[in-house]
């Protein structure tokens, strides 16, 4: 049942934590969160602080700033919980939406600061940030891939990362061709739905 779990990397030590996340849980958690249950905030933090922090650190390239962003995001989510509409977005998607805004604000503040610094020092500074594809999408995608059931998850990993054809995947996993095609269609649709599901009401 590897597929329903996320492996978290904590510092330099790889610490596999099994985290089943299913939609039943999300409904319960979202309701408690809206109702102002502190424990729901703690649970949301336990589940998605890694997601938020990873998006921030990959986008900003600075662990300190990413920690500030993470803190800001959860504080904003809690204070703005009345604005959360579970019919429009799942809780993690809403939190990711807040993360995007906060990261964008941080970039803006940083470039403002840099313009001032450059004006003062007259020099250019380069930073390495990961902006090849939208970072939040990639991190969310990686997380969502982990949430697929084991068989479709394996199919999609082979399709994406081993570049196998569906016929090769069918042979490798000993599944009927039609089953593999069906997994690819459904999983791709599901992954897309998650990428598109983000609510922008924040």
């Amino acid at each position: 049942m590897t597929g329903n779990h996320i492996t978290l990397t904590v510092g330099r030590r790889r610490d596999p934590v099994t985290v089943p996340i299913d939609d039943v849980d999300h409904v319960r958690l979202a309701a408690a969160f809206q109702a102002g249950d502190e424990r729901a905030l703690a649970e949301a933090y336990a589940r998605w602080s890694s997601l938020v922090y990873t998006i921030a650190v990959r986008s900003l390239g600075d662990p300190g700033e990413a920690e500030d962003v993470t803190q800001t995001v959860f504080i904003a989510a809690w204070r703005g919980r009345d604005n959360y509409n579970p019919e429009r977005a799942r809780l993690p998607a809403w939190i990711v939406g807040i993360t995007r805004h906060t990261v964008a604000d941080t970039h803006e503040a940083r470039s403002r600061r840099r313009r001032i610094e450059q004006a003062v020092a007259g020099e250019l500074r380069t930073t390495s940030v990961d902006d090849s594809v939208d970072v939040a999408d990639r991190v969310m995608f990686a997380e969502e891939l982990q949430r697929l059931p084991p068989v479709p998850q394996r199919v999609m990993q082979l399709a994406f990362y081993a570049d196998l054809t569906h016929a090769q995947i069918a042979a490798m996993l000993d599944l009927p061709l039609g089953t593999v095609k069906s997994h690819i269609r459904r999983s791709l649709g599901r992954l897309r739905a998650r990428l598109e599901a983000e609510d922008d009401t924040y």
């Binding site: 990873t54 650190v57 803190q71 594809v133 991190v139 995608f141 891939l145 990362y161």
Partner: peptide
């Protein structure tokens, strides 16, 4: 739309999630 999803997926190969430091929750 599916092509976009696929391209995001291909580029998500080496994403690993990292936990923030414990001080973040203390601040919250």
């Amino acid at each position: 739309s599916l092509q976009h999803t696929a391209s995001v997926g291909r580029s998500a190969r080496h994403i690993s999630l990292t936990e923030p430091a414990g001080s973040v929750w203390a601040g919250i």
